[in-house]
Amino acid sequence: MSETMVKAEEVHKRFGQLEVLKGISLEVAPGEVMCLLGPSGSGKSTLLRCVNHLEKIHRGRIWVDGELVGYREDGGKLYELPESEITQHRAEVGMVFQRFNLFPHMTAIQNVIEAPIRVKKRPKREAIASGRELLQRVGLADKVDEYPARLSGGQQQRVAIARALAMEPKLMLFDEVTSALDPELVKEVLDVMRDLARLGMTMIVVTHEIGFARDVADQVVFMDEGVVVEEGAPSQVLDNPHEERTKRFLGLVLEH
């Protein structure tokens, strides 16, 4: 394993004329939890999507576990990776989305075993056995054969986490995973994430849950308008922010 799990160097990304990332650099060590905070439109989710190459970056470099994301560098020249290699990299990085994005035509267990069977070519019986174990781990042993439409938001999101874990990723990306949930369902999802962090999973978490960031994060990064405004330990960024923008944002988020 490489010394840094994720390394981003001067990452730029634009959509048409709009520049959403303006030179982001950061590092996440193996086993570390990094929380990305910031107002909507600050580029947090885009950065996350660049890490597994769902979005292409325009400048800079991103490495996951020592491997360049999306490209091969040879003699100072960049070559786009073929799809087969990109999918292989993505298979090692789990991602959970704000709106769950479960496959609605598949039951919980079918959602979980789809990628292990199709991508990792694991035997079906084996995939089902470990899929059941994962669903049990996220507290859904009795919902194995339910379709997503019959699950609550919190349950759907826990299936989505199990689905990502089924690929045995070395890194997990969480994109505002509790933002679409009713308030009383947020805790059950955060608890699963706390467990994961305790077990040593490397995680990048885009969130508005300041309490979660304070408890779980090793590093907090505050972003605004495509740049990193402030970063450091949670006690520093959340309790003693230096920057005016960080203070203003935390004031707004913590007000209610």
Binding site: L54, E83, V93, M95, N101, L102, F103, A115, A164
Partner: peptide, 25 residues
Amino acid sequence: EGQTDAAQALGMARLQTMRRVVLPQ
């Protein structure tokens, strides 16, 4: 689009995504 995102994030290729996730829906 979230369906394609989810499938690709799991490492599914574009054809797999189309056949297993998008077309059935």
